[in-house]
Design a protein around this nucleic acid. Sequence first.
DNA 1: CACGGGATCGTCT
DNA 2: GACGATCCCGTGT
Length: 207
Amino acid sequence: MKTNKIKVLDIDFYQQTDVVDVSRQLLGKVLVTHFEGERTSGKIVETEAYRGPDDKACHAFNNRRTNRTKTMFEAGGVAYVYLCYGIHSLFNVVTGLEDQPHAVLIRAIEPIDNKTLMLHRRKMTTVKPQLTAGPGVLSKALGITTQYTGLKLTKGIDAIWIENHGEIVEANNIIASPRVGVAYAKECADWNWRFRIKNSKWTSPAK
DNA sequence: CACGGGATCGTCT
DNA sequence: GACGATCCCGTGT
């Protein structure tokens, strides 16, 4: 039963300096998009932490600042969206203080509001995990594209934000494992910075 | 279920 | 000019 008031995450949440901890805290929160009068949303069930400058898997490793990565150097509370494999828009939450290039990749959500529109965006007909399990497909379902990189998550009407619905995910309900697709990052590939809600059927299969 | 390949393009060398 | 924080579909088991 959810009797708690819904609260939009504020700048203090995003500017916490431990991106790995923020990744865990984001589990159970609700990612919302509101474009052209249409709200779509889903509960975050899988995340990954990326921590420049010491994380080889992070685009901002070694404080690498380019036109693409400059968004990650902004103070926490903005979106970092980039194109992967020429096709997929991957949505990240920038965290930490200015010049700390930290970000959390949202990897999977459990659909909540306006599943009809999400299905339409995905060109699917039935609601099942593959609708939103995966960073590329959840962006598509929510209508997120690279044009929204740099967008503030803390205000706006035509916007993206994250809500706290009062759900608390206990530590023993979180599974930590290595991140996906970062084997090239050598020693960082072993860091268990991928987090998922235990027993959620809305993530990719747990190993 | 595991794999292999193609799609497709912005980014940086 | 090479490649990637992915996805989907095909094949084989």
